[in-house]
Structure formats: C-alpha cells, structure tokens
Design a protein around this nucleic acid. Sequence first.
DNA 1: TGCGAATTTAATGTCAGACATTTAAAAACG
DNA 2: CGTTTTTAAATGTCTGACATTAAATTCGCA
Lengths: 247, 247
Amino acid sequence: MRLDPASPADLSVQIASAIRDAIVAGELIVDQRLPSEAELSEQFKVSRPTVREALKRLAAQSLIRTQRGATGGAFVNRISFEEAYSQQITTSTLLLSMNAVSFETACEARYALERACAPLSAARRSADHLATMRAEIHRQGQPGLTDEAFCASDVAFHRALVDGAGNPVMSYQLAGAVEAMQPLMNMITFTARDRARIVAMHSDIADAMTEQDGPAVEAGLTVLERETQQLALNAIAARQAQKTSAR
Amino acid sequence: MRLDPASPADLSVQIASAIRDAIVAGELIVDQRLPSEAELSEQFKVSRPTVREALKRLAAQSLIRTQRGATGGAFVNRISFEEAYSQQITTSTLLLSMNAVSFETACEARYALERACAPLSAARRSADHLATMRAEIHRQGQPGLTDEAFCASDVAFHRALVDGAGNPVMSYQLAGAVEAMQPLMNMITFTARDRARIVAMHSDIADAMTEQDGPAVEAGLTVLERETQQLALNAIAARQAQKTSAR
DNA sequence: TGCGAATTTAATGTCAGACATTTAAAAACG
DNA sequence: CGTTTTTAAATGTCTGACATTAAATTCGCA
C-alpha cells in the first residue's frame, strides 16, 4: 500500500483508498488486523489524526471495525447481509428523495423486480413466510390504523414475499427497492375503501402463494401495481387541486 | 440535533448519526451548508477532531461534501445516481466475496432480476442500446480476448440490456447484481466453444430486442442462465479433480 | 501448586492548540 | 473602472497529551 504523491486528493482520502483497494483485492483477509494507527501513520508518513480520518471513512462503509483495548485495533470486517441491507436502504431512500424520482418510475422498478421473485418465492416459500403475510394482511384490515402504520405493514408483507424466494442476494437487492418506496407511499392518504381493495389484492397474492402458483402471484402483483399507480395519481391530482384553490 | 449522553457509542458515531438523521428527515436540505467544524464542536461540546471524524464518516457515504476556502464548509450532498451505483457495486461485490455466496445463488438472483427488465427494455430500448449490445457481441467473438476482457464485455452487454428499460431506479438496483457477479465469473475459464455458444445466445437476445419481443428476451436470458450455471459447475468440477490429482 | 485479584500494557478515543493551505471576498492601487 | 494585493474564514494537517478500554501479566494467598 502506497500513496501517489502527485495526487491532488486529500491525504486521508488517499489512505482510505489505498486500504480499501487492498481489501477489495483480497490482500487483506477478513478478520485480519490492520497495523495500529501509530504504525500506519509511520508507514504513510502522516499524523495519527489523518490516519484516523481515513479509518473512520472505511468504518462508515463497514469495511473495517475497530476494537479498543490491548489486543484491539482495526480489523477487516465481514460485511453481513444485515449491514448491507441497511446501507442499501439509506442510500436508496436518499437517492429517491433527493433526485425527484417520480413515483411512477420508482413504483415501476419496484414491482418489476418483485415480480422477478414471484416464481421462486411461490415455489419455495415456507409456512413462516405465509404466516407473516397473513398476519400483515390482518393488521392492514384493522380500523384506526394510521397511514404510516399501514405502509409499514405493506412493506413487511412485501418483504415476506421477497424473502420467500430463499435467496439472500435477491432479498438484499430488493431491500432498497421495497423500503425506499415507503416515504413516497407515505404521501398517499388511503381511504377505507382503498385499504379494503389493497387488502383484497394482498389476499389474492397470499392465496396464490399458498397454492404455489407463481404466475398467479405475478398477476396479483401486476394488479396491485396498477392500483398503486392510480392511487398516486389521485393523490397528486388532489394536491394540485388544493394548491389551485389556495391561490 | 442533540446527543444521548447515556449512549455507549463513541462520540463521533453519535454525532454522525445525529447529522445523518437530520439529513434523512429533511431538516437539512440539499446544498445547505452545515455549521463550520468549530461551531459544531461547540454545539456538541466536543473537540474539532471528533467532529471531523464524524464528518468523514458522512463524506464516505456521499451524504456530505466538503469545500475548502473562505466560503467553504460541509454541504449536504445530492447523491447522484453515479455515486450510488459505485457504492452499490463495491458493497455488493464485497458482500458476495466475503460471505461465501454460492455461484448458483448469485447467478439465480442476477438472472431473475434481469428478466424483470426484459419486457420494459424490449419495449423501450433505443438504437443506442442496440448498437452497444451488437458492439459487445462483436468484441466477444474476437479471438485472443482474455477471459477477463470477455467477462467485462459480458457485463457491458447486460448493462445495455438493463439500461434499455429507461428506468434509472432499476438500472441502479441492478448495477450491484450484474457487476458483483464479475469476480465470480472470472473464476471460469471459457473455451472457444463456450464463447461461441454464449455469443450465439447473446445474438438471439439482441435479435429479440431488435424486434421488441419481450418474452423472447426473457426466454433468451433463461437459456443463458442455464448455460452459465452449467459452465460454473464444470469449472468447479475441474477444480475438484485438480485438487484430487494433486494429492 | 493453583487461583483470584491487582497491575501493567497496548491499543483506540478524545482533547487542546497550532500551523498550512485554499478560496472567495474585500481593500488598495494604478 | 479594472486589476492586483490583502485579508479572512474555512478545511486540512500536525504535535503532544491524556482518558478509556480490555487483554495479558504479575502478584499474593490459600
């Protein structure tokens, strides 16, 4: 690991890159301990705070973890699926909220990807997944549920569907697509009638899952997508009307 | 933004979380300037280096960017799709390589998600996307191409297919699935005959794209998935045999 | 001899203050 | 009025110190 003295980038950025490259290239193995901060600062010919800033950057990406104490130090981290999930979700959420992605685009992507899970999930889902889906459907039917809680339950329902495929890589990739939609969904107000329709569609999907009928699950998702898009259009129209009348 | 004095976490972690939450909650708008490091250190009652470590964490996630000079400081960053792409790819790649994800699982996820793009991409692809696909197919047929270059071209081909859907959210979500497979694919040795078969399959897919025949694209991808899985099995078997004979 | 408690030690976490560097705005000057 | 110089404010980096943590070691005692 060496630095490019001609590089215009800040030292801490360069050091972080050098270590990251070493990890990605496999020169540093999982659970291997990095040299101590003092050693690194000597090796790179920089001060300890600079090394620390570099290490913090890597820690933020879960590439390393640090431990205090006598045998402590920075260790190459095995990125767990859970950590990767949550990173994926925050990045996706911010990406959508900051880039004025239309509801339509995000929704289309989400349902397209979710349909990709349908055949696998229908074939492999466990009783647990079915139970989760049914439980969330039941919750969604309860009166007095806030819109936010309804959306959260919706997300849980869809996650169960995705997880049913039993493919952790797929669950990971979809985590962002499903969860990042939640803030967008929260802008919709669901009337009692809307909810009833959605619950009915969820039931259809759960039924198809129970019977391991992949195509039926796909069809159910397509119907649900159309409904969701329509609800969003109505919500946007309502907001427009409100704005006009306020003038 | 305040800290929880009872929290066991390190100060810099707490400060980073507080600022991150403020950004995610929308209290800090894109391009808004954060207080200077000196002000933050006073506000949080910590030293400047501690604040800096927190800011570096956020910078690593592209949540903020910093600028030097008189009007400089830390600014809330608009995460671009490109930045999100590259983050997605490194995280996905490490996740796969560190967690002993089987080729089968990763490959299944990738092709399932890619098939989800097929109908949209077949309908919407531009001439540009088609040209890219054809160009990559041509490159793949060139003799003397290294296995790595072949894989890289394969990735470019698939990205064109995904981008053809014209849905940036989908392209983003799939970037990880497609690119992270490359290291796994690099472990396979492609014989001339293997390559010829793959090129033929790519041609079939490109033909279907040209005719905007979504189902045919899906079918082509399914065939390609089967072929890829088979090649991987052979590669693993070959490796096993080598190991046995070495004893 | 064996075991528990106290001590040592090596590492990260935090702090304080200083200087270097960069950049834009303000001031001076022709 | 335009150009150049100066100034100021911010981040980037350095030095050196102390605090905290947790494992390893030593010591005391049964």
